[in-house]
Design a protein around this nucleic acid. Structure first.
Lengths: 203, 203, 203, 203
DNA sequence: CATGAATGAGGTTTCATTCAT
DNA sequence: TATGAATGAAACCTCATTCAT
């Protein structure tokens, strides 16, 4: 295990990179900007990372681990009585906003600016779509829903809301989670509202 | 080497840039890659654009005009009887998917990779949120909906679906429009379905 | 002999170049700037000049011819009675300021920005120094004067005064000629003035 | 490849640039030529100067400081008895030729090839002209002298003689100083010499 | 006579990376 | 562990010049 300075420097570099990558993009951030932010020299960078690319990889891995921890934690509660569905979904959204919000820069970098991000996103989408498909066949999800499309929409929305509201501040994960859950579970229209003629509800 | 004429070359450059920018990002695309794709030399690039930056601006403007034309066209049908709401919204989504899908690369570049893109997105979100707020006070939109959040979610979802399905092929604008409309209007849950206990519908 | 447009265009190009070269230097002036100033296209430039360098040569020649005409004109009056020396020298200076002032841009370009200019200057200096040396041996010029140095000083002064006063306006050739003649003939000190003790006049 | 150390490299670059700028002009000298002369790579240049322009600025400043040191040093001996005028002026000229001659390249570059040079020259001219005007009102300088013109002539002559003789070798600062002083103090004509008829001395 | 379109060569500048200390 | 100094490669951009029309 390296001495004090070591871990500290590496961590500082990652932190600085995260911030800058999120702000200016990976391509738009120079190694020299990162080390300046971290209070080190360019050469020091290469003590901790084989290359700029390798550093991006490190961030990607960090993101992956974060996600795995979350997924593992959620695994146990896979099955729950239908009457708790709404609360359950809300809780999942809130948790996600908390998690991603706490790592908003990292999330943005990985998801929007790396090849690996595409893969992560697809994995998440696939998992959600799978769940949804299962729930659809159980009648829990509306038959008119196309899981792939809905999953993609949900992920995109969450991603965006994290950047927009958690990162920039202004909304709590709680708020965002509740409203997002409501939106995706019920849609915009009120129950049996004025625009909702009989039978018209099927697309 | 073809000497077709100015407008043609300029157009070829824009086309090539659009493709490459969308693929590798603006920063990740070199002028030399653009001209290679367009079958020209680097110097020719600067015959048509003051700088790489100026070319991005040209793309941004092109996107803006596209959007304006769409917005103007939609202006006339602002008010419609409630019973047509569903069809009307569906049509808007379909139209949007058609429009953005036809310009998927341009949309991606501008919206995801330029400062101006942020502004456009915010403008669109604001407009949608405004509509939604109005409709909410009319009882057309559920009282539990937070317009800013919902609008942000919708825009993010559309953006993403365009890249995922229209650009890559696999889904028609029609399909996407219908499903997206359904998702956002009704939500995932079925009407009065099993998970939808009495009174539980309110968040 | 080319038609109307022809000579006109060539002349316009030279004129424009003269102005721009004087302002920004030869290296600092692009062909494109020249043709823009002349209201032509780049290709047109090469109808009249083999290259930018060739155009500079043309300007150098034009300067040379100008100078030759002046020298030839002055040739006949080489010998003149001593009592007219002062007036004669003044007249030469005035004439020179008139000539160079009328072609101030050209003079500046050639003398300060071309290899050939160095040669011209050296030729002029040599001629003046020669005259001076002859006059010195005749007792017309002070024995303490070093012709090369004095000639170099005179040429430099004239050159500079042309740029400073004739080109920018503010002094007439007449004024400049009179004052320059006076300065170089008598020097700064007054005749037998206060600072001029007996015998002290020799260096 | 030597890795001597930063200050050395920076100095070598400035030295090389001074030489080349004086020879070929600023515009005519490429960064690549400078670094070649200094035995470095292009990238190294930008370790020490923000741009080529910034390097020119550095040279201009260096010239300015040189001049200031000289001016400050001369300040103390502002007033001196008239009978020492000649020696005093000679000493000033000699000192100037020494100073500028020791920095001939720098002087040439700054004075002939930069905007700032114009300003410096004007400042020097103005100062000399001011002195002269004062001395003229004291009767020390001939009433027929026009200070601006004379000052301009003196500066131009000195500048030129530095390039011609100090830079290229061939004359010492001492020689040049003495002859220049003599020329500008007494003029070309001998005292009461043959060409100096009665009353003709006034222009 | 003149132009619109293009280009090859080369300029300035930036960047990720290396290495001796 | 850290740095100061350097570099090769490549980025963006400019310029003099050419040629088909």
């Amino acid at each position: 295990m390296p001495r004090k300075g070591g871990e500290t420097s590496r961590a500082r570099l990652l932190e600085a990179a995260e911030r800058l990558f999120a702000e200016r993009g990976v391509k738009g951030t120079t190694v020299s900007a990162i080390v300046a932010e971290a209070g080190l020299t360019q050469a020091a960078f290469y003590l901790y990372f084989r290359s700029k690319e390798a550093m991006v990889e490190a961030l990607v891995n960090r993101f992956g681990e974060m996600l795995d921890r979350y997924t593992d934690a959620g695994r146990q509660a896979e099955h729950y009585p239908p009457e708790q569905l709404r609360e359950r979904v809300t809780a999942v959204f809130v948790g996600l906003f908390e998690l991603l919000g706490r790592n908003a820069n990292l999330t943005r970098v990985v998801l929007q600016d790396t090849e690996a991000g595409e893969r992560y996103r697809n994995r998440i989408v696939a998992q959600i779509a799978g769940n949804m498909r299962r729930n659809r066949s159980l009648g829990i999800v509306d038959a008119g829903i196309e899981p792939e499309i809905a999953a993609e929409a949900i992920v995109a929305a969450v991603e965006r809301l994290v950047f927009r509201y958690v990162m920039a501040g202004g909304r709590t994960a709680e708020e965002l989670g509740r409203h997002t859950a409501h939106l995706f579970l019920n849609g915009l229209l009120p129950d049996g509202g004025p625009a909702d003629g009989e039978g018209a509800r099927r697309t």
